[in-house]
Design a protein around this nucleic acid. Sequence first.
DNA 1: CATCTACGTAAGTGTATGCTTACCGTAAGT
DNA 2: ACTTACGGTAAGCATACACTTACGTAGATG
Lengths: 108, 108
Amino acid sequence: MAYGSGIAALGDPTRRTIFELLGVSPRSVGDLAGELPVSRPAVSQHLKVLKDAGLVSESRVGTRRVYRVEPEAVAELRSYFDAFWTQALAAFKTAAENELRGEAHGNH
Amino acid sequence: MAYGSGIAALGDPTRRTIFELLGVSPRSVGDLAGELPVSRPAVSQHLKVLKDAGLVSESRVGTRRVYRVEPEAVAELRSYFDAFWTQALAAFKTAAENELRGEAHGNH
DNA sequence: CATCTACGTAAGTGTATGCTTACCGTAAGT
DNA sequence: ACTTACGGTAAGCATACACTTACGTAGATG
């Protein structure tokens, strides 16, 4: 159940923006901070959360740290919602059929 | 950008559990509270958030309110991660190719 | 009409958390 | 070695928020 921390990590808007920027192309911490209305340490802290959730990975080049999206983690989230959607649709249809049979009245 | 509030709403673990329970089958507020370690009003508040995000819908039957997952909203989240995954993969490959060309050295 | 059930809402509280400034370590350039 | 660039971490703060209890309200039941 690694998707849990993933969704939680993407709950914050700033963090989701960072994630989407990294989705376009890998970036350094300073670059990210330059495109965001928050300080560089704030970006660092967000990156730590994203990294702990396995959503991004880090690679050092000189004094810089380039962060990039981990496609595998995204695939995991995708299949989570994919499976959930299938299940929800089935439950939706089943509930609708039961209502047609008039089951929603007698049981108190 | 309706997916934003959706992801944010699912950030909370309790709310995600509620959402998954409703994914299996529609339920009333009291039923949900019975399966969760929180009070019934807490469940009500979570449901309000989920409903505002468009993830669930409500239907009244007698004094009870039955909540169910909105499949369309789930589909939206699914395609968001689907598109993001495609884009991230492309960015991943592009970055890898650039590194093979040795571009990561000269630029200071 | 009285009452019970099921639920939403208001008010209050404690903790989580997103942000800032200050500081420290590490790698490169001169 | 000194300095500069880059970024992680600590400490503190202010707000958000998840939860509780208490109360109000709409629909069923006698």
